[in-house]
Amino acid sequence: MSILVDHVTYLYETGTPLEHKALDEVCLEIKDGQFVGIIGHTGSGKSTLMQHLNGLLKAHSGHIYLDGEDIDAPGYPKKKLRSQVGLVFQYPEHQLFEVDVFTDVCFGPKNLGLPKEEVEERVRKALLQVGIPEEYWKQSPFEISGGQKRRVAIAGVLAMQPGVLILDEPTAGLDPKGRREILDQIKKLQTQTGMTVLLVSHSMEDVAEYVDRIVVMNRGKILLDGAPKEVFCHVEELEGVGLAAPQMTYVMRALRKRGFDVDEDAITVEEAAAGILRALS
């Protein structure tokens, strides 16, 4: 699904002295099937923007188009919107509540009014997509590990078969391996299904490794937008807004300063290793 955000402005605490623009004339176009990382410090407007995309918040001015249709136009089916744009909140495992893993994932598609067979088919598929094998399906969602809980919660959104998947810091609080497992699975999903994926993240290393494009938000506006390598060239600008570049960018910069002829745009360990080997040979 493609997304077009057209001059969207959103105000918090309107009519009070505390009124401020959480989003300020934001324009953003995301093509079908892209994997986009959204970064920005706390309060930069990224979550506010994400909540507009499935109609949880309504823009004070401007428009949002999904596959070319204005989601605020009268008659646009809101229910369809919510199933088409799946939003995985922070710590989604807090929303698990059913008696077992399988039933929990059924909740969404069942509410869409689908026949039982289709619900179960979708749930099986979603659970396998996030890497939860069958032996866990009858277990209580409260007795599995933290990483598994999080994946079950993501399966709950996938079972709605959305065209856009938005994940708000899906790896917060997970151990390094759990972090990688979840991101690998999301990447795999995105390549296999062609779903549009938006990943809100505080980890520069994660976005450097996984996404095709990075959008940097600051004070309700888009500050930078481009391929990871392009965005992470702007180290000073990123630091100026409370962010950073991946550690590898700093390694390469330090080496250059020391007189090594290495590319400064390496952002992953793999790229940095290759660059250093070239410089040493």
Binding site: G40, H41, T42, Q90, G173, H202, M204, G242, L243, A244
Partner: peptide
């Protein structure tokens, strides 16, 4: 885990 929920600067 005092920094699990923070952005890079906060961390």
């Amino acid at each position: 885990e005092p920094t699990a929920m923070l952005d890079p600067n906060g961390r």
